[in-house]
C-alpha cells in the first residue's frame, strides 16, 4: 500500500509557504463557497480561481489528472442521465431520447463544482506534509482525542497495510485463490480480517505502554503558552492570503445570491 500523499509536500511555492492553519481556513472557505454556487454565470469565475491557485501551487498537472481519474469517472456516471431526465426545454430530440436544457445546466454545475473542489482540496492537502495539516487542525480547535486518534491511525496505516499484504502473500503461497466467491473464501477472509484486528489490538496495547512511559497524557502546568500563535512578519503575509481567499469566497457567495434572486 502506498500512501503517496506527501509526495509533493516539500516543493517550494507561494502556496507551500502559506502556513498550514491559515491555508486550511482560507481554502476550506473557498471550498464551501464553491459548494454553494448555483449560477451558471459564475462557473467560469470559479474555474479561473481554481486554475490560478493550482498554478501558484506548482503541483504537476499529471498529479492532478492521476488523482481526478477515478472519482471523475464516478461523477460522470452519476450525472450522465440528468440531461435526459430533467427539464422541459428540449435541446435535441433523437427518437425517444431528448436532451433537455435544464438537465444539462444542472449536470454542468455539478461537474464544475466537483472538479474545482477536488482540485482545491488537492492543493490544500498536497502542499504540506500530512502531519502539518493535522497540527493545523489542532490549532483550529479540533478536539485532542480526535487529533490523537488521527495521528496514531495515520502512523500505523502503512504498517497495518503491510501486515495485510504479507498475510495475503502467505495465504497465496499456500494455494489460496481469492478470485472465487464461495462460503469458504468468505470464511477465510473473515479470519484474515479477524487476525488483523487482533494483531492491531495487541500492537496498540504495547504502543500505549510505550506512550505512557514517555509521558503521554501528562499535562505540564504551563501548557497554554504553546498554543498562542506567534505573530511575526511572515505570519502577516499568511493572514493576508487567508483574508484575500475568504473575501473571494464571500464575493462568490454574494454574487451567487444576487444572480439567484434576480
Amino acid at each position: 500500500m502506498k500512501l503517496a500523499i506527501d509526495r509533493y509536500a516539500y516543493l517550494d511555492s507561494p502556496i507551500h509557504r502559506w502556513q498550514q492553519n491559515c491555508k486550511i481556513v482560507g481554502l476550506l472557505g473557498l471550498i464551501f463557497a464553491f459548494a454553494f454556487i448555483h449560477s451558471l454565470i459564475l462557473l467560469p469565475i470559479i474555474i479561473i480561481t481554481t486554475g490560478i491557485i493550482f498554478f501558484l501551487s506548482r503541483l504537476p498537472f499529471s498529479y492532478l489528472v492521476s488523482r481526478l481519474r477515478y472519482p471523475g469517472w464516478f461523477i460522470l456516471a452519476v450525472v450522465f442521465l440528468l440531461p435526459f431526465m430533467i427539464g422541459e426545454t428540449i435541446l435535441f430530440q433523437w427518437g425517444e431520447l431528448t436532451l433537455k436544457l435544464e438537465g444539462c445546466q444542472i449536470a454542468a454545475v455539478i461537474v464544475v463544482r466537483f472538479f474545482c473542489i477536488l482540485t482545491i482540496s488537492l492543493v490544500l492537502f498536497g502542499t504540506a506534509p500530512f502531519l502539518s495539516t493535522i497540527k493545523g487542525l489542532r490549532s483550529l480547535g479540533l478536539p485532542q482525542v480526535i487529533v490523537d486518534m488521527t495521528l496514531l491511525a495515520y502512523r500505523y496505516l502503512e504498517e497495518v497495510g503491510e501486515m495485510v499484504n504479507t498475510m495475503e502473500r502467505a495465504m497465496k503461497l499456500r494455494g489460496f485463490d481469492k478470485h472465487y466467491f464461495k462460503y469458504r473464501n468468505l470464511q477465510v477472509l473473515a479470519r484474515l480480517i479477524g487476525s488483523l484486528l487482533v494483531r492491531s489490538y495487541e500492537k496498540s496495547t504495547r504502543i500505549y505502554q510505550a506512550m505512557i512511559l514517555r509521558g503521554y497524557g501528562y499535562q505540564p502546568p504551563s501548557n497554554k503558552s504553546q498554543k498562542k500563535l506567534v505573530l511575526n512578519k511572515n505570519h502577516y503575509q499568511d493572514l493576508a492570503a487567508t483574508i484575500l481567499t475568504l473575501s473571494i469566497a464571500l464575493g462568490l457567495l454574494g454574487l451567487d445570491l444576487f444572480f439567484t434572486i434576480r
Binding site: M1, T150, L152, A153, L157, V164, K178, F181, S200
Partner: peptide, 22 residues
C-alpha cells in the same frame, strides 16, 4: 485511544480488500 486508533487503521485497510462477486 491507542486501541481505537489502531482498529481505525485496521478497518480502513480492511475496506481496501475486495471481494469478488462475479
Amino acid at each position: 485511544i491507542p486501541k481505537a486508533s489502531l482498529l481505525t487503521a485496521a478497518f480502513f485497510v480492511t475496506s481496501l480488500i475486495h471481494i469478488p462477486i462475479p
